Simulated scan of single mutants.
Amino acid sequence: MSSFVRNAWYVAAWSREIGRQLTTRTILGENLVFWRREDGTPAVLVDRCPHKLAPLSLGTLVGDDLQCGYHGMTFNGSGQCVRIPGQAAIPPSASARTFALAERYGAVWIWMGDPALADAARIVEVRRHGEPGWALVDGQYLHFDCNYLNITDNLVDPAHTTYVHKGTIGNAAAEDVGVKVEQDDDHVLAYRWVNDSEPVPLVQAMGSFTGPVDRWQYYHLHLPSVSCVDFGSIAAGREHSEEEMDAGLRSFSYNFLTPETETTTHYFWLHLRNYHVDSAEAGAQVARLMTDTFLEDAAILARVQREQERTGVREFVRLAIDNAPARIRRLIARQQAQEAEQAAA
């Protein structure tokens, strides 16, 4: 059974990736082809001509339309065939499937499910995006060789940072600090404060603290697969309030997971910070540090995926730190069941 949720917004590409050239990407197991119309709006079709199933991406753009490179059938951005060379009549079945698109936060989003439910207002809000006093690193992409749910497990698991990310965002001070979990219908939050501790390497490099700090990690997961990690530090003993957190060293790291197949995932990410906001050098350093951090995750999760496939088992034992991942998987299963019921109806 597929692990995908279709009635959801996924990042298909960064806006700069889609232009007047044909761009391909596999999303939720579907091969897709993207381009921009002459007015700049994005378009997408299943990358498959309905005639002989030749990839439409082998064709060419004719104005706003896509001409198949095999027999010249031409499709508009709505998937309708508008021309068949040498044939006036166009069969009703001569169409290619399309999907709803939206553009926000410098990304093109795609809705792979019921188009009647594709409300762009449901795209997750990116906090602080475009606000004064916050610097942005965006346009980032990695490819993970694992199922997206293994990544969501990881992205609501503050405990692993002590061991996997000791060179960037973790240290030994957090080893025995418990994780609290909250949830609602489409959101799970795992969080903790590590108080009166030595700053982690990233905070040491970017901050100006002269003593111990109180560090927070708030791991938000918006179903099915948008993560926001609210991370930062304030001088030890300060009030744990939004105002103090904004006055300290703070960042919001957004991770947009788009399943490619059951065993591979597109990992788009952007990062907002309130420190060294005018420094291009600091932005480049943050991009390197965060990339290193995510590559550490990618390496261990690829090994996890391979062992799960080899054994046919996801885990032999469950720990207290698995509370948030277990909740996410239950909510995902519930969403899939609701989609199955709607499809049957």
Score class of each variant (00 low, 15 high):
residue 310 R to E: 08
residue 171 N to L: 03
residue 193 W to T: 13
residue 58 L to F: 11
residue 269 W to H: 04
residue 338 Q to Y: 04
residue 54 A to R: 12
residue 198 E to P: 05
residue 325 P to E: 00
residue 304 V to Q: 04
residue 278 D to T: 12
residue 60 T to C: 10
residue 81 C to N: 10
residue 86 G to D: 12
residue 65 D to F: 02
residue 39 D to M: 13
residue 202 L to K: 01
residue 56 L to H: 15
residue 56 L to Q: 14
residue 28 L to V: 12
residue 324 A to G: 07
residue 107 A to N: 01
residue 337 A to M: 03
residue 234 I to V: 11
residue 262 E to A: 11
residue 64 D to Y: 11
residue 210 T to E: 14
residue 106 G to R: 09
residue 102 A to F: 09
residue 205 A to G: 14
residue 96 A to Q: 10
residue 95 S to D: 01
residue 77 G to Q: 02
residue 62 V to L: 06
residue 23 T to M: 00
residue 43 A to L: 11
residue 300 I to S: 03
residue 199 P to T: 12
residue 26 T to S: 12
residue 183 Q to D: 09
residue 243 E to C: 07
residue 121 A to Y: 00
residue 267 Y to P: 02
residue 23 T to D: 00
residue 99 F to Q: 06
residue 181 V to L: 01
residue 18 I to F: 05
residue 76 N to Q: 00
residue 168 T to P: 03
residue 217 Q to I: 13
residue 66 L to N: 09
residue 102 A to N: 12
residue 224 P to E: 09
residue 319 L to R: 12
residue 31 N to D: 15
residue 247 A to K: 11
residue 304 V to E: 02
residue 37 R to K: 12
residue 8 A to S: 15
residue 130 G to E: 05
residue 200 V to R: 10
residue 38 E to F: 05
residue 18 I to R: 02
residue 322 D to F: 06
residue 9 W to S: 05
residue 110 I to W: 08
residue 69 G to C: 10
residue 96 A to Y: 04
residue 52 K to E: 15
residue 195 N to G: 11
residue 118 A to F: 10
residue 296 E to L: 02
residue 200 V to T: 15
residue 297 D to G: 04
residue 165 H to N: 03
residue 78 S to R: 09
residue 83 R to K: 06
residue 92 P to S: 03
residue 301 L to P: 01
residue 305 Q to H: 00
residue 187 H to A: 05
residue 289 L to S: 12
residue 35 W to D: 11
residue 96 A to C: 15
residue 271 H to W: 11
residue 115 P to I: 14
residue 82 V to W: 06
residue 317 V to H: 13
residue 175 E to H: 11
residue 151 I to H: 08
residue 5 V to M: 01
residue 170 G to Q: 03
residue 191 Y to D: 07
residue 318 R to L: 15
residue 15 S to C: 02
residue 280 A to Q: 12
residue 106 G to E: 08
residue 181 V to F: 03
residue 225 S to T: 12
residue 51 H to C: 14
residue 332 I to A: 05
residue 170 G to I: 03
residue 160 H to Y: 05
residue 228 C to E: 09
residue 57 S to C: 11
residue 55 P to F: 12
residue 316 F to Q: 13
residue 149 L to K: 13
residue 42 P to Q: 13
residue 72 G to H: 08
residue 263 T to P: 03
residue 48 R to G: 11
residue 11 V to A: 00
residue 210 T to H: 13
residue 76 N to P: 02
residue 283 G to Y: 03
residue 45 L to S: 02
residue 294 F to R: 02
residue 63 G to C: 04
residue 212 P to I: 10
residue 134 W to A: 02
residue 21 Q to L: 12
residue 118 A to R: 07
residue 52 K to D: 15
residue 257 L to G: 01
residue 143 H to E: 10
residue 102 A to H: 14
residue 176 D to E: 13
residue 263 T to M: 07
residue 312 G to P: 08
residue 305 Q to K: 02
residue 12 A to C: 03
residue 222 H to T: 05
residue 248 G to K: 12
residue 135 A to R: 01
residue 64 D to N: 15
residue 73 M to Q: 10
residue 211 G to M: 03
residue 256 F to W: 06
residue 306 R to K: 03
residue 80 Q to E: 01
residue 270 L to R: 03
residue 336 Q to L: 13
residue 86 G to T: 05
residue 22 L to G: 05
residue 204 Q to K: 15
residue 69 G to Y: 07
residue 175 E to F: 06
residue 307 E to V: 05
residue 281 E to V: 14
residue 215 R to F: 10
residue 252 F to L: 14
residue 62 V to C: 10
residue 199 P to F: 11
